[in-house]
Amino acid sequence: MSAKFATENQLAKSLKDQFKNKIKEEYVESNRIKISTSPENLKNLAIAVKELGFEQVMSQGGTDYPENNVYRIEYHIICVSKKKLRSIIFSIMTEIPKDKPEIETLIDVFPSAEFHEQETFENFGITFIGHPRMERLLLPEDWNDIPPLRKDYILPGRG
């Protein structure tokens, strides 16, 4: 914990004060903060992050972990207008069970997440509850295989 990451540590600490043990600090390093939480708390965490001054979702993606039977969903949130926070990428993460792939959408907190969530929906089959357009975006209309970014989808010819 050097003084070099003062801003980052301070941000993480303020969140930890607010949420106590509901969140877990994955790591804090130069310009990177990653915090994980349970799916129910994700929205509250996002609101808290927004209150810290972060403004837009730069990236939202999922990762499939078949051995743990979870999908990991990660939002990378940045700030563009405040000089002090600009260098930081704030990552909030949660894990949802594969047998019930549902989570509340963050569109009303960060409208910029709209297309990202849509993409995660079609690539993993994760439903974002409350999202106005849970429909195909990039995949072809006649795609009738399992969502392609799941690990059990094998690229044709690569099995």
């Binding site: 310009n31 403004e55 837009q56 979702v57 730069m58 563009v80 207008s81 600009r86 260098s87 960060f110 409208p111 910029s112 997440a113």
Partner: peptide, 24 residues
């Protein structure tokens, strides 16, 4: 522009001098 997550020159044309080359 901030709300919708606009980036690049489009963001800078809206008056925000955000550029990763300077930010990080």
């Amino acid at each position: 522009a901030i709300k919708l997550g606009i980036t690049g020159s489009n963001l800078r044309a809206a008056g925000i001098d955000s550029d990763t080359r300077k930010d990080e």
